[in-house]
Nucleic acid binder design. Structure first.
Lengths: 124, 124
DNA sequence: CTGGATCCCCTATGATACTG
DNA sequence: CAGTATCATAGGGGATCCAG
């Protein structure tokens, strides 16, 4: 039973949790670094690759590209390729994207309470 | 030479995002594997280490212990040590824990829509 | 301009063994 | 029972170079 020890366990646990509740899959998605930030960034009107990249100043091309693909894959944004040279692509939130944004706003408010309390406790 | 190349960038980006919005810190927390499951598990009345471990059948001691500490650190659960031999410790959700649970329920409903759509599209 | 292809490193997960 | 200590590993994040 100990072949591919870590791999198989890792995979099994992940699959187990995703099957248990789709929440786990969503959490894995939105908690990927820069993911929520890219979502908010597009919501605020930064609809081009470069605009997002400039706004989130430390994000790398690789990651931004990956996050945009994921957002599109899950139907949270639309991608419009104008087939021009040089390339021009525009992104926009879908209704689901807006909905997720709203949920994340709620989470954000909650996070300020919980994390503010933690840091306040240390300081004060 | 570039000491801690990745580390410094990695750390800087993480810090940047956490400073940008506490949401990122909360997402990092709740998306840790088994985290939300442990929370729900306690909410359902599994208030002992072993009960949780039995309910989440693949979780390891190490991880469960870590998640419980995190939950307590952020004020989401309380830990009551009865100082007995053999050890007896009980866990319970705080108000904040309940609140987070409610938020995660919302996320969970949303996740079923978004992920269901994704899988349905492939299948149907 | 919008990415794709590679390569590398760090961190979270978890197996295992042990303790009060 | 309820953990702690140690060690191994896979995958995510990111740097760099390249292409249409």
């Amino acid at each position: 039973m100990s072949e591919r020890k870590i791999t198989s366990t890792n995979y099994r646990n992940q699959a187990y949790l995703e099957e248990k509740c789709t929440l786990n899959e969503l959490l894995d998605l939105v908690s990927k670094r820069w993911f929520s930030d890219v979502l908010f960034c597009i919501e605020e009107g930064n609809n081009r690759f470069k605009l997002i990249k400039d706004d989130l100043k430390y994000i790398s091309d690789t990651i931004l590209s990956d996050r945009l693909k994921l957002l599109e894959k899950y139907g949270l944004i639309t991608r419009t390729d104008f087939d021009e040279i040089p390339p021009k692509v525009e992104y926009a939130l879908t209704d689901k994207g807006e909905e997720l944004s709203g949920l994340l706003d709620l989470m954000c408010q909650f996070s300020e309470t919980i994390i503010g309390d933690l840091k306040g406790a240390v300081k004060a």
